[in-house]
Amino acid sequence: MSARLARIGFLAPIAVYLVLFFGYPLVSNITMAMREFTAASFYTGDAPFVGFENYAAVFGDPVFGTALLNTAVFTVASLAFQFAIGLALAVFFQRHFPLNGVLRSVLLLPWLLPLVVSGTVWRWIYDQEYGVLNQVLLSTGVIESEIPWLASTSVALTAVTVANIWVGIPFNMVILYGGLQGIPTQLYEAASLDGAGPWKRFTNITWPLLRPVSAVVLMLGLVYTLKVFDVIMVLTQGGPANATETLTTWAYSLSFGDLNFGAGAATGNLLIVLALVFAVLYLRSTRESAAAEQERS
């Protein structure tokens, strides 16, 4: 009996925490999305139930399509490049050379800087008239006239994505580097003896053995990227003309710009569902590979 109580006692803090700080906001977000929730609702508590009207309004809004597409492009491009560059750097740093450790820590800097700081620096880099990027490109003759990186609807999303890739590379590199350390060196030695070149060794040893770590990195990266807010806010605020609006920034501007909290909550819920779908896919894939592992042994 007292063992049972103890068990409950151990569980209670986390249960209370989850209910208070996760369950409650989630439930109120879901109910808020089904109400016509305006500034007045906060005071009067009067928010008429409208069912799925907020969702209909969100889906019907022309910005929704733009924001969804932007979110997809931003997330896929960020993940692909962060991962590829991070992996390349991780493999590079596996070799032994002087200053290896120092260089690796320097490469961590983008991850350590507050996002508002790196965002502001990127804003300067991208500045149309005085930014270093345009100056360099102009003086080397790559471009003929200044490109309005953040001020044109056609290139702003690319510019914002590049900045976000830069921010995410260190995270990918560090975790993948850790994963690489876990691969026994004997495998590489044996492979070299069998005559496997660097590419063969990478595809047959590194890549398959790194898969569990890669899955974690990509999953975490996906969640981080879906909810990226500060980088976009500092660089473009979702503009010009919604060219860099993602579901996250749009949810914010619906709630705190238009003060249309119902629609903002509905958009937020769509984001949660999106992240959840990928989380479930990830969990299933790890369960399957774990099961396969057990069968093998």
Binding site: S152, T153, G239, P240, A241, A243
Partner: peptide, 14 residues
């Protein structure tokens, strides 16, 4: 908000 979007579309968009 919509006016601001329209301004940006006309100045920076197509």
């Amino acid at each position: 908000g919509s006016i601001a979007d329209a301004i940006q579309e006309a100045l920076a968009g197509s």
